[in-house]
Design a binder for these strands. Structure first.
Length: 418
RNA sequence: CGGGGUGUAGCGCAGCUUGGUAGCGCGGCUGGUUUGGGACCAGUAGGUCGUAGGUUCGAAUCCUAUCACCCCGACCA
């Protein structure tokens, strides 16, 4: 990519609507723009980050043998009436009518649709277990959207669903997903913890939440010596006390704030029973299908990552989700042919190695360019001016560190293409 | 929904109390001087003051209604 032809929308002034740091930085760095309350467009830089996160999730889902699908976001009321949630889900379910006055809703979650999908094609227990996931927009008509993309009404979520002949198989797959989630959050390079949790609105017997640790998190977590936590409500039940302070002291726990970015559930037969999804087993006995569901708030992870990784200059992306791996900044390339030729040569070499590189060939000053890229948070910065062009080197700087060093082309390629 | 607040140029704001037809900073554009960490000078473009109605000779300013957005609380990935 060349910055002169790439839509960058950084802003100098602090946006007035933003309260928390991730929201401010996302607007300043030009990652997202608000459409209406709780709804955001992703600009090119923001969308690249979203795709990075999606791909890590996708790879780990595929790796455990969950298959990607896509379901419609507008869902017929009939399915929700079958599950009983048309009545119970409440105002968060945005309901609408089509031209024939049939009732629909915008999908906030997909248990009904996927249960319907599976029951139409499930003929034999031999097809089980079935594991499928999708990455798509969800809509929840939140009482109060806030903090930008952190709690939006429309957001990107990965939701996986599993179908099993028996509890043992569900338990096994629940563990598979749990392991996959740990891999995902490790690869995202975020400080996180898994906690025992309430299954809330979705229903079922067992659930775990994954939280990114951040002071601005909305959830209170109690974390033990092994890094395993519980949320407040669960802790009260688990330790049989209402006194949080006492629980903390007596059990040697640490209180931290978390941003919930993942939630996995053992649903049991709640939906399969209500929606009549059953199958004959080896002995021709009719069994209800055991289900699990596994969510990750993909777009929320962007905000969570920024909450955890920023400084006074802007975002400091973990390398695995940075929108670009490196930016090459020209000094006066438009006035200096040797600089222009040399920077293009570097750009081509890095591109050829598959390095995600953007060349800042805009007609602006070094300071402005550096400020833009430090705000956006690109992890590696290579500066080339007249002297670098002469010596065939670059002035190299890591985001988050102040010192600069001189690197040969070979070393630059080595550092950025590993 | 209850409580608090804000809508004026692309962004951030002043002006409103005490009506007289809109201004500042940043950004944009043009020209020149600069040029290795947000340059300087000069010039220039850009706003039916959220919307509708009312009061008045006259409304960004006063009154009424309405819409949008933000913050605190109840709900959630």
């Amino acid at each position: 990519m060349k910055a002169s032809k790439y839509p960058l929308f950084t802003q100098k002034n602090n946006p007035s609507d933003a309260e928390i740091i991730s929201h401010k930085l996302m607007l300043k760095a030009g990652l997202t723009r608000q459409q209406s309350s709780g709804q955001y467009s992703f600009l090119p830089i923001g969308y690249r980050v979203l795709k990075k996160i999606e791909n890590i999730i996708r790879e780990e889902m595929n790796a455990i043998g969950s298959a990607e699908i896509l379901m419609p976001s507008v869902q017929p009321s009939e399915l929700w009436e079958e599950s009983g949630r048309w009545e119970t889900y409440g105002l968060e379910l945005l309901r609408l009518k089509d031209r024939h006055q049939r009732d629909y809703c915008l999908g906030p979650t997909f248990e009904e649709v996927i249960t319907d999908l599976v029951r139409k094609d499930l003929n034999s227990y031999k097809q089980l277990p079935i594991n499928m996931y999708q990455i798509s927009s969800k809509f929840r008509d939140e009482i109060r959207p806030r903090f930008g993309i952190m709690r939006a009404r429309e957001f990107i979520m990965k939701d996986a669903y599993s179908f099993h002949l028996n509890q043992e198989c569900l338990d096994e797959w629940y563990e598979n997903y749990k392991k996959a989630y740990n891999k995902i959050f490790t690869r995202l390079q975020l400080e996180y913890t898994m906690v025992d949790a309430d299954s809330g609105n979705i229903g079922g017997s067992k659930s775990n939440e994954f939280h990114v640790i951040a002071d601005t998190g909305e959830d209170d977590l109690l974390i033990d010596q092994d890094g395993i936590g519980v949320n407040y409500e669960i802790a009260k039940t688990k330790y049989n006390s209402d006194d949080i302070k006492k629980i903390i002291n007596e059990n040697n726990l640490v209180h931290k704030k978390g941003i919930e970015v993942g939630h996995i559930f053992k649903l049991g037969d709640k939906y399969s029973k209500a929606m009549n999804l059953s199958i004959a087993d080896v002995e021709s006995k009719i069994c209800n299908i055991e289900m699990g569901c596994y969510g990750i708030g993909v777009s929320r992870i962007i905000a969570a990552a920024i909450e955890q990784n920023h400084d006074d200059k802007g975002i400091v992306w973990p390398a695995t989700i940075a929108p670009f791996k490196i930016v090459i900044i020209e000094i006066d390339g438009h006035k200096n042919e040797s600089v222009r030729i040399y920077s293009s040569e570097l750009y081509e070499k890095l591109s050829a190695k598959g390095v995600e590189v953007i060349l800042d060939d805009r007609n602006s000053k070094l300071g402005n360019k550096l400020n833009d890229w430090e705000l956006i948070g690109i992890p590696n910065i290579a500066i080339v001016g007249k002297s670098e062009a002469e010596t065939k080197s670059v002035t190299f700087k890591k985001r988050g560190q102040d010192d600069k060093s001189s690197l040969s082309i070979e070393n630059l390629i080595k550092i950025t293409s590993d």
